[in-house]
């Protein structure tokens, strides 16, 4: 074997094959890691309309049976309502505990406009329930409202959720 070929083989072993063995080790070790529970998808919200009616002059009753979407990036969540009143919230998930906060929001018509200043969501996620269940409390301007949300089925064909 010429010197150039010899150097090439050594360099190839050091720079290509050795890292590939390292890659195998990384993949093996990584299997032990766990990622946050998946809450990504569309959810149908279930709230007793009577609980919502005293808040903000009856302007958010529409939320009682509405839907919202969660877009998940690891522990970070973005919640977006898919019906009126429109809102976007940011949140986090730690274990099974989900927290979200909506920025101050103006709702209603010109004649009946209302601003919700403080809007907090705190819920527990049950991944074993079928469909997946999120339940907890929605605190809207010091009114505590109990909610349940069920994950809507999604198409998983072709690897898409």
């Amino acid at each position: 074997m010429s010197r150039i070929n010899h150097n090439f083989v050594i360099a190839y072993l050091l720079l290509v094959l050795l890292p590939l063995i390292g890659l195998g080790a990384v993949l093996k070790y990584g299997r032990r890691l766990s990622a946050p529970a998946s809450v990504d998808g569309a959810w149908s919200l279930q709230i007793d309309a009577a609980e919502l009616s005293p808040i903000c002059g009856n302007t958010i009753v529409g939320m009682a049976n509405s839907t919202f979407a969660i877009r998940q990036s690891g522990q970070n969540l973005v919640l977006t309502s898919l019906a009126e009143p429109k809102f976007t919230a940011t949140g986090t998930i730690e274990g099974t505990l989900l927290k979200g906060r909506v920025s101050p929001l103006s709702i209603g018509t010109m004649e009946n406009r209302c601003t919700v200043r403080d809007w907090l969501l705190q819920g527990t996620f049950d991944s074993h329930a079928v469909p997946k269940l999120l339940s907890g409390t929605l605190r809207i301007d010091e009114h505590d409202v109990v909610f349940r949300a069920l994950m809507q089925p999604t198409n998983v064909s072709n690897g898409e959720r």
């Binding site: 720079l15 290509v16 890292p19 590939l20 390292g22 890659l23 990384v26 993949l27 070790y29 990584g30 299997r31 890691l33 766990s34 990622a35 946050p36 529970a37 998946s38 809450v39 990504d40 998940q72 990036s73 690891g74 522990q75 959720r161």
Partner: peptide, 25 residues
Amino acid sequence: TAPFVLAAMLALYLYPRLSDETVSF
């Protein structure tokens, strides 16, 4: 191989933070 292995090593750190359980490591 170099960026591939570095990316896999970085994945050890990013996976619990930016992925979710539906994706395997």
